[in-house]
Design a protein around this nucleic acid. Structure first.
Lengths: 152, 152
DNA sequence: CGAAGATCCATACCAAAGGATGATGGCGTC
DNA sequence: GACGCCATCATCCTTTGGTATGGATCTTCG
């Protein structure tokens, strides 16, 4: 789909091919320098230094390309509601719906309208929610629910 | 304190020294091979290949060491409150304090106690806050403030 | 079937939040 | 000094939130 996904699949062999080309190009360049300046040969230390510097940079670049991709993937997950905590606390499906709407700043009346239930019912759900979360205010409930990973 | 903090401070020069030593060692080894096997000199392609492979690996290792450290540091930052949005909306310092406590689920009375001011003063701040954020409830204010990056 | 839990609704009461308005004092700027 | 902004506090009033209590289905599970 996007370029990052494609890089993750074909990135390795692309890197290998680029490496081969880079190596060939480097050999060509150095040989050309020898010929051009009529040098019998460059000192071996020069070769090592140049190649080491170039391929260290290339290694760092390639390493960052290949390693950081893998760590970014799990960050794209929309949200995993932390089922474990959800069941441990005993929050029901309807209560979670109310909790989510509460977290976006909806009033009890708005929640009632949106879920097609009455205001007393919403109050009932919120009260049960507060008891289960061991809080006394909706702002506190939202804060705690977020810290527990119950809601995004 | 820990080894990662120390690496962040002295890691660079340590790496430079190790690099120099590695380079010297490599030169020595290659020269020794030339002498030992009575070779006039090894082909330049061999030099390049060996050095490239070694220093690519070294580059990847060093890159991962140095780069991942740097990316973890900004994650430790407490929070950068998005000064731009803060000034654009015109939220004052005291209002931001109230907003932060509000986001953790504190009641107006608790905020008043914590900031050593009266309840009416807190209400005044919250009212001004709601007007500036264009909301009508504290839960809505917290939600909007979070989405704007005003609070963590 | 009977118990348990989820969902739904209602009434009544008290606490908290929110809106409106006004007032005081400090601080920096034009 | 007049003006604007911030911070502080107050009073009155309305709305919303939260607790308590109780009742009605419906499903699930032993």
């Amino acid at each position: 789909m996007d370029s990052s996904a494609e890089l993750r699949r074909s990135g390795f062999w692309t890197a290998v091919v680029l490496y081969g080309l880079a190596l060939a190009a480097l050999v060509f360049v150095l040989k050309y320098i020898e010929y051009r300046y009529l040098l019998r040969e460059l000192r071996v230390e020069v070769y090592i230094g140049v190649v080491a510097a170039l391929f260290t940079a290339l290694g760092i670049w390639m390493g960052s390309k290949l390693l950081t991709r893998k760590e970014e993937v799990p960050a794209e997950v929309p949200h995993r509601p932390n089922e474990e905590a959800l069941r441990r606390i005993g929050i029901s499906g309807r209560e979670l719906e109310v909790l989510r709407l509460m977290a976006t700043g909806r009033s009890n009346q708005e929640i009632a309208d949106q879920l097609f239930i009455s205001l007393p019912t919403v109050k009932s759900h919120t009260s049960n929610l507060f008891a289960k979360l061991d809080v006394r205010r909706r702002t506190e409930a939202v804060h705690k629910a977020k810290s527990l990973g119950l809601i995004p």
